[in-house]
Design a protein around this nucleic acid. Structure first.
Length: 890
RNA sequence: GGGCUCUUAGCUCAGUUGGUUCAGAGCACCUGCCUUACAAGCAGGGGGUCGAAGGUUCGAAUCCUUCAGGGCCCA
């Protein structure tokens, strides 16, 4: 095969992705091998690839590829999330553009539009993942709204209802007036907003509601929301507040609507805040609702679903809450009720999706009881380590949330999602049943009615049943994901679920720890009695250089596909992984991708060098033999290190270890050691060994840089599909000869010393040097061939006395001399040696100090003392050498 | 306001049970090289009072206390 002079990522990426797909390497079916399973955090169906996805999926691909090479049956299940609120919002917006209002459509008509939208724009992101090299089993692509997943959700809902875990409740919920749906607490974002505090005066009357009391004028309340006074049903004062003793037992009149409301007393009221008089609006504030329940107050809801005022709003009926706020404050001012206004900063809840200001609202909702469900999930993560978090610190966050968990509001007032399988047949509170099918619901309803009603009534028919209009929270489908992708809910004993579940690793962002991760753990224990995954790897958020979160609105997120085009998928993968310790935010900088691209190029050129050599039947040079033996040990040592990093999910450390192995040890050292002289052939032994070494390197690199490595692999030799790198065997840990490693380290010191002198004295590399050595440390001569090769030294001679008129340097207690033509700057040499001497003596003193400290010798472990003794001996030897040199110079 | 967490070189980060020359890595920077795979390269080099102040200890980047300043989650 002809080797192109430049590596072209585009061609290689397309070629090998197609090749991998054609040969079905990504596809998995249960067999005798140990399974390795990852389920993708399903991206929003209409989403597009952003940096967070790139990081996340690169990590998953890397783990999957490594597992595959380790001989496991690797299965990475891809899929998408129907993202009910986000998708419905997009569809509604699109319809609006076309002049269609959602309210003009029937549910079925709307769903038809939504599916059209999904079919048209959905799945783009999955195609983008392929560009990144993701080795997902695409035959298994799942969708949270497809038939299997829909059925799973319904089955689970019915099951939990039957277990008494799901109930209907009248609750104050976070209402998004724009999307006209309920939001979970987690979907509300609190923002500081500048607003006004309005001081309003209410008239006070006697308990009969008519007679103005003598000597009492009125009372003043402070509110940020004057429009809600129309829903006031009480005024509350603190019973300990001396200022308002005279108000006890009286009543107040709400301005404008002139409703007479009681003045109640409760210690809940903060005497310091505002005026000390609190208006109570149970329908529109959570705290007021609690007060209202305690004091049995009336609840008056003044809003429509879109947060415009209803008939309780009187002449403001139909107007938006913010419009009313302005207008009513004007009216209040005109009728002399508005005492004053003040600037006020308050925390306003807004919708994560629509940004609309959240309205607390009372409504009928479905709830899932969490108290019992969380118990095994708390245990599994925090007590038994059945599920492990990386980094561990997120366990604290998890604990705090799980131990303070509230019931989960699982209903959403939307159409795009799994419709709640509750069927109403009458007007009573309990005139409903829950069932997987309407037929079953009918049977249950008739059964229920015959029990509850004494009289003989006509049986109900299907037409008498009304299904609940609401759908389930998106997370109520994704919390089943690791089970439902294998059909483990609808068919709990099927072969696939039994083989692939529990999955191994989950890679996701900490922002959905509660939304998703915690709930999957809960459902895993509930429905499989097993953890859903063993390890959770939390990635950080991807931020830009200025530490800003990458977002569409800021426009600071680079186009993922353009990055791949520019740096190659491998380059981008390396760039992302290089600085992404688990759980740490990643300050993304395109330069990192450049580094990745450079690395790819380095590997490519290293390959070109080797492939360009002529091979001949020659004896193997000593330097090559030793160099290869050393590298093999170095490789194995690094492999141990890499495995350790992987076991702790320190992915960027693993990559860095490989990076240095390949760049420094393999390219800069080993290739230079074995490189034959210009246009000379290489011996066969060395050549075969270096090919084998290159292949091992490629294996380690493959999970990180799949395309480049497969390309090089296939260039090295003709390979059958069974010999493709993607399924090659991951290197096994082997013995490390530490003598070779320390020997090379010493030789490197010598090499570096010679190079430094070359540099200082401007001696070109072409000019061969002769070196003499005073081998005080009795260092093996084995490495001389290597040293000579890497420094262009013609001869290393061993001497007994210092060489006069030569430049010198020292490695440990050995001293090296390089005679050069021309005068030696003796002064400079002396100064250099004195500098070294000073440092070494200082070091020795600190060691001696330590060793002469009785308490140190008595308390420190033997091993530490031994090390200190060795340090002392080394330093003393070095000082001796230095002093001798100094004497010979002066 | 409550909980969690962080602060180490210009940048991004390692630094495990306190103890090897422990003060590190990569990038960036500086200097010299178009050396025959790679200038997307090679060789060499400089750079940090480990946020501050106390304390424990023979010994502290590491443990404790206080302070300062970030970040995340929750209310």
């Amino acid at each position: 095969m002809e080797i192109p002079s430049k590596y072209d990522p585009q061609i290689a990426e397309n070629r090998w992705y197609d090749y991998w797909m054609d040969h079905k390497y990504f596809h998995s079916t249960p067999d005798d091998r140990e399974p390795y399973t990852i389920v993708i955090p399903p991206p929003n169906v209409t989403g597009i690839l952003h940096m967070g996805h790139m990081l996340n999926n690169t990590l998953q691909d890397l783990l999957t590829r490594r597992a595959r090479m380790m001989g496991k049956n690797a299965c990475w299940v891809p899929g998408m999330d129907h993202a009910s609120i986000a998708t419905e919002a997009k569809v509604v917006a699109k319809l609006k553009e076309d002049g269609i209002n959602k309210s003009d459509l029937t549910r079925d008509e709307f769903l038809k539009h939504a599916w059209e939208w999904t079919d048209k724009y959905g799945g783009v992101i999955l195609e983008q993942l392929k560009k990144l090299g993701c080795s997902c089993d695409w035959d298994r692509t799942a969708f949270t709204m497809d038939e299997e997943r829909y059925a799973s959700v319904i089955k689970v809902f019915v099951d939990l209802f039957n277990k008494g875990q799901i109930y209907r409740g009248h609750r104050m919920v976070n209402w998004d007036p724009e999307a006209q749906t309920t939001l979970s607490d987690e979907e509300v974002i609190y923002q500081e907003k500048q607003g006004l505090l309005y001081y309003l005066e209410y008239k006070v009357v006697e308990a009969d509601g008519k007679t103005p009391p003598s000597g009492v004028g009125g009372l003043t309340i402070a509110t940020t929301r004057p429009e809600t006074i129309l829903g006031d049903t009480a005024i509350c004062i603190n019973p300990n507040d001396e200022r308002f003793k005279h108000l006890k037992g009286k009543k107040a009149i709400v301005p404008i609507c002139n409703r007479v409301i009681p003045i109640i007393e409760d210690e809940y009221v903060d005497i310091e805040f505002g005026t000390g008089c609190l208006k109570v609006t149970p329908a529109h504030d959570l705290n007021d609702k609690t007060l209202g329940e305690k004091h049995k107050l009336e609840t008056i809801d003044i809003f429509n679903a879109d947060a415009s005022l209803n008939s309780f709003g009187m002449h403001y009926e139909g107007k938006d809450r913010f419009v009313v706020r302005k207008e009513i404050s004007k009216e209040l001012e005109e009728i002399g009720v508005l005492v004053k206004t003040e600037q006020y900063m308050n925390n306003v809840g807004t919708s994560e999706r629509t940004k609309a200001v959240i309205e607390p609202r009372l409504s009928d909702q479905w709830f899932l009881k969490m108290e019992d469900l969380v118990k095994p999930a708390i245990n599994g993560v925090l007590k038994t380590d059945d599920v492990k978090f990386f980094p561990k610190k997120f366990e604290n966050t998890y604990r705090h949330w799980m131990e303070n968990i509230r019931d989960w509001n699982i209903s959403r007032q939307l159409w795009w999602g799994q419709q709640i399988p509750a069927y109403y047949y009458g007007d009573g509170q309990n005139d409903f049943v829950v069932a997987e099918t309407i037929e079953e619901a009918l049977r249950l309803a008739n059964e229920k009615r015959s029990v509850t009603s004494s009289g003989v009534e006509k049986p109900l028919s299907i037409d008498d049943l009304r299904q609940d209009e609401d759908v389930l929270d998106t997370w109520f489908s994704s919390w089943l994901w690791p089970i439902s992708v294998f059909g483990g809910i609808t068919n709990p004993e099927n072969e696939e679920i039994n083989y692939y579940y529990p999955t191994n690793d989950l890679v996701t962002g900490p922002d959905i720890l509660f939304f998703w991760v915690a709930r999957m753990i809960i459902s895993g224990y509930e429905y499989r009695d097993k953890r859903p995954f063993e390890n959770v790897y939390f990635t950080g958020l991807v931020r830009d250089k200025q530490r800003r979160k990458m977002s569409k609105s800021l426009g600071n997120s680079p186009d993922a596909l353009k990055l791949i085009e520019k740096y190659g998928a491998d380059g981008v993968r390396v760039g992302l992984l290089l600085s992404s310790a688990a759980g740490n935010d990643l300050m993304f900088d395109e330069d990192l991708c450049q580094q990745g691209k450079n690395f790819a190029n380095k590997i490519w050129n290293g390959f070109r060098l080797v492939k360009g050599w002529q091979v001949a039947d020659l004896p193997q040079p000593e330097a090559s033999k030793l160099g290869i033996a050393w590298y093999q040990s170095k490789f194995n040592q690094t492999l141990v290190e890499i495995e350790d990093h992987f076991s702790k999910y320190r992915i960027s450390d693993a990559l860095m270890a490989i990076y240095k192995l390949v760049w420094d040890d393999y390219s800069s050292s080993l290739l230079e050691i074995i490189k034959p002289a210009y246009q000379k052939p290489i011996d066969k032994t060395t050549f075969n060994q270096i090919i084998s070494i290159l292949e091992s390197n490629l294996k380690l690199l493959h999970p990180f840089m799949p395309f480049l490595t497969e390309e090089v692999w296939q260039h090295i030799a003709e390979r059958t599909p069974e010999q493709a790198l993607i399924i090659a065997e991951w290197p096994k840990e082997a013995t490390v000869n530490s003598e070779l490693i320390s020997g090379f380290d010493f030789a490197e010191g010598v090499i570096s010393g010679i190079r430094t002198i070359r540099k200082e004295k401007n001696i070109p590399m072409k000019e061969a040097l002769a070196v003499s050595v005073l081998n005080k440390g009795k260092v093996s001569k084995n490495w001389d061939a290597v040293i000579k090769k890497l420094t262009n030294v013609s001869e290393i001679s061993y001497v007994d006395v210092a060489v006069d008129g030569a430049l010198s340097f020292r490695v440990k207690s050995n001293e090296y001399f390089i005679p050069i033509s021309g005068a030696i700057d003796v002064e400079a040499e002396i100064a250099k040696i004195q500098e070294e001497l000073k440092y070494t003596k200082g070091f020795l003193i600190s060691v001696q100090k330590k060793l002469s400290n009785e308490r140190f010798v008595n308390n420190a472990p033997d091993k530490v003392i031994e090390i200190e003794r060795k340090k002392q001996a080394d330093a003393e030897a070095k000082i001796e050498t230095l002093e001798k040199s100094l004497a010979s110079l002066s």
